[in-house]
């Protein structure tokens, strides 16, 4: 037996899909199609303008034989390792300290977090000034009487990358703190009380009970910070402008200068694809597990 559905009902049924369609289309084009497009350029011989021929993996071979790219990859490794370790550690410490019923918690939290509201360009500009050996921190310490104190990392090719680490840690610790603090607040207080009654000291309670319970927060912090690390671009431009020389080159800055300054669009696209693959390798499993968990939770 067939019944005719009223027209208005049928429109109502399709309206949700209709409304979502433009967004889907835009994302399919601007994210997925564009990724493929970049991938295509990375397989072509493009220099100043895109050329749609096919030269296989030539651009990748060129990329990996460029010393500057090696510097960039090495720097990314050094930078991410230190940035992740310091930001996570400091953020966790801040969160635990703030969780001890601190009277001015709100104000302190605001102080630790405000750098996140700033542009990396602003952060870079400020830290460039602070780290300036002639007029900044080094001079302050020298003037205090320690005349042999030297803190000129920003001018030293070997150490400049650590300046980037300092500024990036300063900017992002509040973010890690916020996530850890949310995690700590989500832990059932009775667990801590039970451990206290058993006579465990506070540091021990945190080490053996609380921190392991923060596993999901750790996962989020590490994944999101890795993403920040890989795409960090503006901070380096503002703080060191990839210098001295190309000592603080990173994949993101390499991609930009290869594409827009050195007319090596194919190499630039290849480096962009390398960045994308790195991010995807971290983010896709993370998103998958987050989505899967929330579905299981229902």
């Amino acid at each position: 037996m067939s019944r005719s559905t009223p027209l208005s009902n049928r429109i109502e049924n399709w309206l949700p899909r209709l409304v979502l369609a433009p967004s889907l289309l835009v994302v399919l084009v601007a994210v997925y199609l564009f990724i493929c497009w970049t991938g295509w350029i990375s397989l072509s011989s493009s220099m100043i303008v895109p050329k749609y021929d096919f030269v296989g993996l030539n651009q990748y071979v060129r990329l990996w034989s460029t010393p500057r790219w090696h510097t960039a990859v090495f720097n990314l490794f050094v930078f991410s390792t230190l940035f992740l370790a310091l930001t996570t550690g400091l953020g966790l410490l801040m969160a635990i300290l703030l969780d001890q019923k601190i009277r001015v918690e709100g104000t302190l939290r605001a102080i630790f977090l405000y750098p996140m509201a700033l542009s990396f360009i602003v952060t870079g500009t400020a830290w460039k000034w602070i780290l300036n050996p002639a007029l900044g921190v080094q001079k302050v310490v020298n003037d205090l009487g320690w005349t042999s104190f030297v803190f000129d990392w920003i001018a030293q090719p070997t150490f400049a990358i650590y300046c980037v680490v300092i500024a990036a840690v300063w900017q992002s610790t509040g973010f890690a703190m916020a996530i850890f603090l949310a995690g700590l607040r989500g832990i059932d207080n009775s667990v801590i009380k039970a451990a206290q009654i058993e006579g465990a000291s506070l540091p021990r309670i945190y080490r053996t009970i609380v921190v392991p319970m923060l596993r999901p927060a750790f996962l989020s912090v590490i994944v999101l910070l890795s993403y920040i690390a890989i795409k960090s671009f503006d901070l380096i431009l503002a703080l060191t402008n990839t210098g001295p020389g190309s000592a603080t080159e990173m994949p993101s800055t390499f991609m930009y200068s290869a594409t827009f300054r050195r007319d090596q669009m194919g190499v630039g696209a290849a480096s962009a694809m390398m960045m994308l693959m790195t991010v995807a390798a971290i983010i896709v499993p993370y998103l998958y597990s987050e989505l899967k968990e929330s579905r299981d939770g229902h």
Partner: peptide, 26 residues
């Protein structure tokens, strides 16, 4: 609709370097 959400979500973590060139062309 869940698949669409997943597709959208990846956009949160897109390294924009991967789309700059085509976007400039477009």
């Amino acid at each position: 609709s869940n698949v669409i959400f997943g597709l959208l979500l990846f956009g949160c973590f897109l390294p924009f370097q991967a789309v700059i060139l085509p976007m400039a062309q477009t």
